[in-house]
Structures are given as C-alpha cells and as structure tokens.
Amino acid sequence: MKKSVDILGLQVISISEGKELGSVKGLVINSSEGSVAALIIDDGKWYLGAKLLPFSAIAGIGEYAVTVEGSDEVLSVSTAPDYEKLLAADIRIIDTKIVTKTGRILGKVVEFNIDENGKIVACDIEDVKGEALTLAAQRVITFGKQVTVIAEEDAFITETTVPVTKEPPVQPKEEVAPAPVVKTALPVEAAEKQQEEPEKKVDDKHRKFLLGKKASRRIETDNGVIIVDQGGEITEEVLQKAKLAGKFVELSMNIQ
C-alpha cells in the first residue's frame, strides 16, 4: 500500500525516453469508485494547461519516481473530458469530516492509503478525542468534498496500532465474568510481507518491461565496475547488479 503523501512530489519518468516528465502535484479522486483515477503532473508548463497521468498507465511507483512507458501516457486535461469532470469535483478526502449516516461526527481524515491499482483501501483518521484510528474504505458510503460519510457502527473504526482479540470467558463458581481484553500486535514478518506484496508486483512489471532492452550507454557502479556496456542486453543479472549498486533508476532511464 501507498499513502498519498508517499506519491506527492515524486518525479515522473518515461522509461522508453529516459527523461523526466514532471512531478506529481496532486491526486484526482473518483469518489464513486473510491479510487485515485489519475495523478496531476506539474511539468513547468502551466500556461499550456494541466497535465494528467491516468493511474492505469503507471508502470511503477518507487521511493524516487513514478515510471511510465512513454511520455504519450501523460494527457492534457483538454483532451480528457472524463478526468476534467473529476478535477472539477475537487474531492480531496484529507481534512474532510467523518460523519455517520445518522449525523454523528466522529473526527476527520488525516491520510488515506491506496493499493497498486489506485483503489482506496483505508483512511487514517483522528477522532474527536485526538486519537489515531483506521477506517476501512469499504465502510465509506460517500467520499465528499467536505464530508466523508460512513455507516453508523462504531465498530467499523479500529485503533491503528493493535487489533483486539477476546479470550474465552473465565468460569468462576458463582458468576461468569469476561476475561480482560488482550491487545496483540500483528507479527512483524506478516506485516512486512503484507506491505511488500503490492510493491513486488510493481517491481515485477517494471523488470519485465526492461528485460531484453538495450542499454543506450554504459552503466557503471560508483567504483567504476561495469554493470552493462552501451548496446548491451538487459538481463536478469544486469538488473540485479543495477539494483544492488543503486543504479536501477539510472539504468531505467538509459534504454533503447
């Protein structure tokens, strides 16, 4: 999963052309589908109109950049009327009030999380007491411009840090009393695996695109060791060397 803050500000890089196309300035929300429909791209040419990158056209999202196969994936708003309507709706999600269907206010949204397909899977919220909670996206009825409407049940909101489990009730001689609630943390290995799976899918897609391509120039490690010569074929071994040497992005930007 990625938080919106992890995407904002990233450079957008064309894999086939090896150039930067701009940076991510904002996210276009499709409230009816509960997803990020596109990224707003700042290419420094604001006078020519806003540019959009459909989420479906993204090849990968990493720590440094969002990658696409070519610059033609970036659209002008004037040629994408469907996205223009979503832009006009101006759904932000963050800082919207959390209100139940019956009109109770429960807090506000401070962040949201999306999967590798752009689907919003959860919202991080701050309740009226200032506590941090997580709201599963499937419990949201409406993502609005100023208000996020959810179902009434408070149980839909859980603490972000620990899930709650209940032990079987203790059976004393005279009366039955429930055992104390024990909070258990998600095992570290399971949490890491859950976080790595979407990122692995993105990496695999990127690697498949690069395999078989030719390097447009020689790529070397910081110590001068050749990873691949100019014109050399990009193989699994080359990709592994580039990744270990921290030259994966540089390699991605220099293919033909």
Rank of each mutant, 00 (worst) to 15 (best):
M1P: 12
K2H: 15
K3D: 12
I7K: 05
V12L: 03
I13S: 00
E17Y: 02
E20K: 12
L21K: 05
V24N: 03
K25T: 04
S31G: 03
E33N: 12
S35E: 13
I41Q: 05
D43I: 00
D43T: 01
D43V: 02
W46K: 15
Y47V: 11
A50E: 14
L53V: 02
L53A: 03
P54S: 02
P54Q: 01
F55D: 02
V66W: 04
V66I: 07
E69I: 08
G70P: 00
E73M: 13
S76H: 09
V77H: 03
T79H: 10
P81W: 05
Y83L: 15
L86H: 07
L87S: 02
A88W: 04
I93M: 01
I93A: 02
I94A: 06
I94P: 01
I94H: 02
K97A: 15
K97F: 11
I98S: 05
I98A: 05
V99K: 15
T100R: 11
T100A: 10
K101T: 13
I105P: 01
F112M: 01
F112C: 01
I114P: 01
E116N: 12
N117F: 09
G118W: 00
G118K: 00
K119I: 06
K119G: 04
I120D: 02
D127N: 14
V128F: 05
G130C: 06
G130W: 09
E131L: 05
E131D: 14
A132T: 12
L133D: 08
L133T: 01
V140Y: 06
V140Q: 04
T142A: 14
F143M: 07
G144P: 08
K145R: 15
V147L: 09
V149D: 13
I150H: 04
I157S: 12
T158R: 15
E159A: 04
T160L: 09
V162H: 13
V162T: 14
P163F: 13
E167P: 00
P168K: 11
V170E: 14
V170N: 10
K173P: 06
E174V: 09
V176G: 03
V176K: 14
A179Q: 13
P180C: 10
P180N: 10
V181Q: 14
K183Y: 15
A185Q: 12
V188W: 07
V188H: 09
E189K: 11
E189Y: 12
Q195F: 10
E196H: 07
P198N: 06
K200Q: 14
K201T: 09
D204F: 05
D204L: 10
K205Q: 15
R207T: 07
K208N: 15
G212T: 07
K214Q: 14
S216W: 07
R217T: 12
I219Y: 09
T221R: 07
D222N: 12
I226L: 04
I227W: 10
D229Y: 13
Q230M: 14
G231Y: 12
G231F: 13
G232F: 11
E233G: 00
E233K: 12
K241I: 01
A242N: 08
K243H: 11
K243T: 13
L244V: 09
A245P: 03
A245E: 04
G246P: 08
K247F: 08
F248H: 10
L251Y: 08
Q256T: 10
